[in-house]
């Protein structure tokens, strides 16, 4: 499935997300089962499977990691599981150190905040670099950047969890 085609959007990483969401809502409304209550069974089935497709497409596009994966997969690149190249040692060292720092920061509100805001900035930077590479068609450069974004996303999740923990959730 090409989620961009399903929603009638250009195949780009940098999308107008408001427009994308509006397309999703508009199509979902048009394909809503209530509108096909009186239609022939095959038409009803068609509308339903289209509606499922539209939902899947939106889920794939709203998330930057899935959006990048969709573009790279459509370009014939292998992504996910163990198909991507191993991360560079220096990068892994950074990841390890950041993780250890977060462990140490746990329980100390100020320190956790610092880690969270850095994690946010790193995620945004990784997303920006990945998007730029994809949108200029440099798919091979994009693959390690996708790995970076995955690490950044994972770290941001962990950092937010530590933050929630402080807030007593």
């Amino acid at each position: 499935m090409d989620p961009f085609a399903v929603l009638g959007l250009p195949r780009r990483f940098t999308l107008d997300m408001k427009q994308a969401e509006a397309r999703h809502l508009e199509l979902s409304k048009t394909l809503h089962p209530d509108r096909y209550a009186a239609a022939a069974p095959n038409e009803r089935r068609m509308a339903l499977s289209r509606a499922v497709e539209v939902n899947e497409a939106w889920r794939a596009l709203r998330d930057p990691i899935k959006r990048a994966e969709a573009i790279l997969t459509l370009a014939g690149k292998q992504v996910g599981e163990t198909r991507e190249p191993k991360p560079a040692p220096a990068f892994l060292m950074e990841v390890m150190e950041a993780r250890e720092e977060l462990d140490e920061a746990k329980g100390n509100a100020e320190h956790v905040e610092r880690v969270v805001s850095r994690a946010r900035a790193q995620f945004a930077a990784a997303e920006g670099e990945l998007g730029a590479a994809i949108d200029r068609g440099a798919f091979d450069d994009a693959i390690p950047l996708l790995g970076r974004l995955r690490y950044a996303a994972r770290f941001l999740d962990e950092a937010r969890l530590a933050e929630d923990h402080l807030a007593g959730f």
Partner: peptide, 13 residues
């Protein structure tokens, strides 16, 4: 040994 799995963001030393 320091290794990582890019697909899931794991890191192992």
């Amino acid at each position: 040994g320091l290794v990582g799995a890019p697909a899931c963001g794991d890191v192992m030393r």
